[in-house]
Simulated scan of single mutants.
Amino acid sequence: MDTIDRRIIAALQKDGRISVTDLATAVGLSPTPCARRVARLEREGIIRGFTARIDQQALGLPVSVFIWVELETQSKEAIDTFERAIRGFDRVMECHLMTGSRDILMRVVAADLSDFDRFLEERLMRVPGIRSMRSSFALRSMVDRPALPIV
């Protein structure tokens, strides 16, 4: 990746709906080479797609819960089983395999406490191989940065 690719990525992170013409102007290229670079960045998996950022509260899901999960065993099979199960849970916004005393950290959204309780009882607690879970509720978001730093 060169400097122009980095400028393209920075501009797209600020405005994913920018036209190719405006993007080309912003990075100092003509539209056709700019479009080719964007297509290459997509093919290479650097640009993984374009989405709209939706206000979680406005959508009726104001509660964010961080859940630490400890598995009974840390075998590849146990991790794969857990991963397959939670990929089907649309309330799970993020899930990370971690180092340390807990195995997994996930962020779940819910409409309210009753909604979160239903998610736990009907979905997460039915996943085999979980030893323990600890939940923490986010009071507010202090940093919610959509763009990665361009280095």
Score class of each variant (00 low, 15 high):
E44F: 02
T81R: 13
P146Q: 11
D144T: 08
D80Q: 13
I104M: 10
M1F: 08
D2K: 13
E42K: 15
I18M: 15
L71H: 07
D144P: 02
S132L: 11
V127M: 00
H96E: 10
F116K: 07
I86C: 04
R145K: 02
R84L: 09
D2W: 08
R43Q: 06
R118T: 11
D90A: 11
A78H: 11
S64P: 04
I104K: 10
Q57Y: 06
E77I: 11
I104V: 15
M133H: 13
V69A: 08
I54F: 13
P128W: 07
A110Y: 06
P149G: 07
R40W: 00
E121W: 11
G129D: 00
L23Q: 00
A39L: 10
R48K: 15
E77G: 07
A26S: 14
T32Q: 13
G28V: 06
I150D: 01
G16W: 07
S101C: 00
F119N: 03
F50C: 02
S141I: 06
M133T: 15
S135D: 03
M133G: 13
A52P: 00
S136N: 13
F66T: 04
L97R: 06
R107H: 04
T99V: 06
D117I: 09
R107M: 10
R131P: 10
T51K: 09
D103H: 07
M98D: 11
V127W: 00
K14N: 05
S30Q: 07
R131S: 12
E121Q: 15
G60E: 06
L120C: 14
G100R: 11
L105R: 02
P128L: 06
V38T: 02
P31F: 07
P33Y: 08
V63H: 02
V109R: 13
R102H: 15
Q56K: 02
M142L: 15
V151I: 12
T21C: 06
V63P: 03
V109S: 08
A138E: 14
L61K: 09
I86K: 05
R107F: 02
V27L: 08
W68I: 04
V63S: 00
F89V: 00
A11I: 03
W68M: 03
R43V: 03
R87Y: 02
S19L: 05
A11K: 12
I4L: 11
G100Y: 12
D22N: 14
R145L: 08
I46A: 01
I46H: 08
I104F: 08
A138H: 10
A58E: 10
P33C: 05
F66K: 03
I46N: 02
D90R: 14
A110W: 03
H96F: 15
M142E: 13
M106R: 10
D22C: 01
G16Q: 00
F119T: 02
R131Y: 15
R140C: 10
Q56R: 12
S135F: 05
C95P: 01
